[in-house]
Amino acid sequence: MNVNNVMSNKKIIAIYVLPALLLILALIYVPILLTGYYGLMKWDGIGKMDFIGLANYTSLIKDPKFWGSAYHSFLLALFSAISLIGYLLVSIILAGKIRGADLFRKIYLIPMLLASVAIAQLWLKIYHPTNGILNNLLTSMGVENTPEWLADPKIALYAIFIPIIWQYAGFYILIYYAALKNIPESLIEAAKIDGASAWQIAVKIKLPLIMNVIKITIVLAVVGSLKYFDLIYVMTDGGPNGSSEVMASYMYHQAFRGFDFGYGSAIGFFLLIICLVVTWVITKLTASKEDVNY
C-alpha cells in the first residue's frame, strides 16, 4: 500500500489516531473533569461523598492561606521569567562560536539530568545551618550570625528559588542555543559586512528571529512555576509555617494531610484555570502582527 493512499483516507486516519486520543481522553481530560467534580463534594477520600455545590470554591476564594501560596507561586513565576533573560545572554554567548562552547553547554545541562529529589538533597546540604558549605563559607569570611536559610520564614522561599532556577537553566539554554544555531549564517555575515556590531547583531537580528521560541519559553517558565511542587515539598514542605507554601503544595497538604480531598480537588481545578488564564494572557500580550522573516 502506498503511504499517500493511507493518508488521504480519512477513516484510516481516524483509526490510527483513535488509540492515542482515547488514552489522552481517559488519562488526562477525564481526570481533569473529575477533579472539578470532586471539588463540588465534601469528601475525606475514604467515606462517601456529599454534594455541597460550590462551597469549596467559595471558601477557596476567601482562604488567605491559599492566596498566600498563590502569591508565592506568582513570585516564583516572576523570578523564572526574569531569569530567562540571563539564559538568553548565556546562550547567545555560547552560540557565538566561543572556545569550549560544547563543554559549557554540557555543564549547564547537567542539573537537568539530576532527579529533583537529588537536587533537593544537594541543596539541603548546602543550606545546612551549621555544617553547610554556604554557612561555613560565611563563617570563614567572618559573618557571625549566619542566616538559617530554610528555617527563617523571611528568606526560606527565596532560598528555594535559587535551586529551582538553577535546575531549569540547562533546559532553557539548550532551547535558545538550538534556536540560535538555526539562524542562517549568511544573515549574520551580511550584517557583519554592513558593519553591524556584535550587540546590534544580537538585538536586531538574532532576537527577532527567535522571538517565537522566546514566547514559548515564557509560557513554559510561567506555567511551570505556577504548578511547581518538587523542591518545595522535599526541602521545606511549605514551611516554616507556610512561608514557602505554593499552590501545588497547599493542594497536597489539604488533600493528603488534612484528608480533605474535596477541597484539595477544588484547589487543583482552580490552579488549572489560573494556568489557562495566564497562558492566554501571555499569548495575547506577546502576540505580534506578523512574524519576522528575513
Binding site: 543550606y127 545546612h128 545551618p129 551549621t130 536559610w149 530554610l150 528555617a151 527563617d152 514551611g239 516554616p240
Partner: peptide, 20 residues
C-alpha cells in the same frame, strides 16, 4: 540547635548522633 525549624527529624537527630 541552630535552624531547627528547617531541619527534618533525621537531620536534627544527626546532631545528637554526632555528639554536637
Amino acid at each position: 540547635i541552630k535552624g531547627f525549624n528547617g531541619l527534618s527529624n533525621d537531620e536534627g537527630k544527626s546532631e545528637f548522633m554526632n555528639e554536637k
